[in-house]
């Protein structure tokens, strides 16, 4: 049974993606990511000297500041900050620059559904732009569950509110290995199978959740390709950005 989506997309179709790097001049790294009408700008400052009070000085420390489009920062923003911080901590190599702090500032430009995944993607690109060492990229997607049990990817805000449940999922990006097939197989398999972050809203059955996971993981291949293409083309376009 086909789901009719208001903008005519198929259930597995993502909204048009757009990504640009280096849009802010003062920050060490910046990126803008938009999925359809949802647009988020991420800026990275760092590494700066010194860690915050309770943090381990033997590792680099990350700090996330989430700025909503309007109004003051409340509990929702604090939750997003915590989720984003832990997600990015898992992809950064924290032992390379110990006793430093890297600040990531997220500014919501427009929220039309799928806000947290957009922010994760933007933050990831901004970190690459700033040259922070990463283990792998993180690609993020939102999967919705309709009442009939179908899984829909990348919902708009209206769709999110109407749906029974939705899940924000973050996966490591798919691997384009230059090594021949079979070598280091287990490690890459683990990476491909892994889930970095999951935040769900609304109740769903356990099987439905695993369907969402599968669909989401399948979509990450497309997102990873888009990311790779985007990052490569911009690197070729600019000279080295020293400092």
């Amino acid at each position: 049974m086909e789901i009719d989506r208001t903008d005519g997309r198929s259930p597995n179709q993502l909204r048009p993606l757009a990504c640009s790097r280096g849009i802010l001049h003062r920050s060490h790294g910046s990126a803008s990511w938009s999925q359809g009408d949802t647009r988020v700008i991420a800026a990275v400052y760092g590494p700066k000297a010194g860690t915050k009070k309770n943090e381990n000085p033997e590792r680099a420390c990350l700090e996330v500041i989430w700025k909503p489009k309007t109004g003051q920062s409340g509990k929702e923003e604090k939750e997003y900050e915590t989720i984003l911080k832990r997600t990015l901590q898992s992809i950064c190599i924290l032992t390379i620059n110990p006793n430093t702090t890297t600040s990531i500032i997220i500014q919501v430009v427009h929220d039309d559904g799928s806000l947290l995944p957009c922010a994760v993607n933007a933050a990831c690109v901004a970190l690459v732009d700033a040259g922070i060492p990463l283990k792998h990229l993180a690609v993020s997607i939102c999967c919705c569950l309709a009442t009939c049990g179908h899984v829909i990817l990348d919902p708009t805000k209206l769709e999110e509110e109407k749906m029974k449940a939705f899940a924000y999922l973050v996966f490591p990006n798919s691997i384009n290995s230059i090594l021949p097939e079979g070598s280091s197989h287990t490690k890459s398999k683990q990476l491909e199978d892994g889930l970095v972050t999951s935040v769900t809203h609304g109740g769903m059955s356990v099987e439905d959740y695993f369907h969402c996971l599968d669909r989401g993981r399948a979509a990450t291949a497309r997102l990873s390709d888009f990311l790779r293409k985007n990052l490569q083309s911009q690197v070729l376009g600019e000279g080295s950005k020293a400092g």
Binding site: P68, T70, G71, G74, E76, E161, H201
Partner: peptide, 8 residues
Amino acid sequence: MTGKGSAT
């Protein structure tokens, strides 16, 4: 999400 930003 409904209720976001509305004062109690």
